[in-house]
Nucleic acid binder design. Structure first.
Lengths: 179, 179
DNA sequence: GTAACTATACCGTCTGGACGGTACAGTAAG
DNA sequence: CTTACTGTACCGTCCAGACGGTATAGTTAC
């Protein structure tokens, strides 16, 4: 069999990084190829057009989201606590895929928006099992807020320490609500 | 005296609308001029370049934010409740300016990000006076979450009715926290 | 086992179109 | 006469995508 397509993953990773760090506008095919250490021709060999690149990213997001939801269900201190903790930017594969996709949703990319809605609904369902539908909503919005802020920091922000403190505060608030 | 510069505001409004509906990428100068019913030459008469257009938008945002914070302080049922209610997308001038500016922050526009951080801090301070620093954080993140979702609906979303119900839920949760 | 061939995994260059911005001549209203 | 535009023509740059070429790994045939 022929050699493995090492470039494919490199390109996807590079696209993700650029979306996070410099936004959709600057994540051009040239920039992606350069960051991935691949020629533009090579990039287009794997992804015939930009839409294909986006599709692959969304595919990856879906996979990671499914894994995440499994872990959430199995979390020892409840899915709500897990959810809040995991909404903090921690540079995990899931975080990266999520924030990268956020950039696309912002640019009014319909397919991306639909995927997001789906994932959010799944999260909400799992949360509701843990804390009931009302608190689930509150927790869900807090998590979104955390992501909203992570967006503005464009990757490993300086405000990481203070955000960690915020997560502890939110977990405290959650405890108060549980009673 | 010469006639008033009616085109200036029309251009700003158009830019705002396009940012909200189709994102930063598609909000080109040509598109803005067309939406505003103004020639491109006319647009560039008022705003010599795109950066000037952005500055004017941020100026408008700051003005509206100051007004909003005043109203928040004066809210009869407390600033936290006011904040949650006002975080729902209601197509107010403030909402429009805020979400439009969000689009720019996403594209890593530094000045916009700085302005956002400032406004958020002011909100947080006012909230803390009402409900204390911990709950203020929770409320602040819930509000951000609400905006985060408004972004994805790109203006008057279909999910408006269900979002209104969510606001009621969040207000209920807030009441539980207040005790 | 080696020559002929095929498929995969790339590289590098080019082009057509869009976009930001300039320039400038003209017009209409106060 | 000035302000507030319209309209068009144009330039430089950037970008998505097309295209032609190359290297190498497996496959078949003898």
């Amino acid at each position: 069999m022929p050699r493995k397509p090492v470039a494919r993953d490199a390109v996807l990773d590079a696209y993700e990084s650029l979306l996070i760090e410099v936004g959709e506008r600057a994540a051009t095919l040239d920039a992606v190829a350069k960051r991935a250490g691949v020629s533009k021709g090579g990039l287009l060999y794997h992804f015939p057009n930009k839409e294909a690149l986006i599709s692959a990213l969304l595919e990856r997001l879906d996979e990671l989201a499914q894994e995440d939801i499994e872990q959430m269900k199995a979390a020892p201190d409840g899915s709500a606590a897990y959810f809040i903790r995991s909404s903090l930017w921690a540079d995990t594969p899931m975080d990266r895929a999520f924030v990268a996709a956020t950039r696309l949703a912002e640019v009014a990319h319909e397919e991306t928006r639909r995927r997001f809605a789906g994932i959010q609904q799944q999260w909400l369902d799992v949360l509701a099992e843990d804390v009931g539908p009302e608190i689930a909503k509150a927790v869900s919005y807090m998590g979104d807020g955390l992501y909203f802020n992570a967006m503005f920091e464009g990757g490993q922000g300086a405000g990481n320490a203070s955000r960690e403190a915020d997560v502890d505060i939110l977990l405290g608030v959650l405890d108060r609500l549980r009673k």
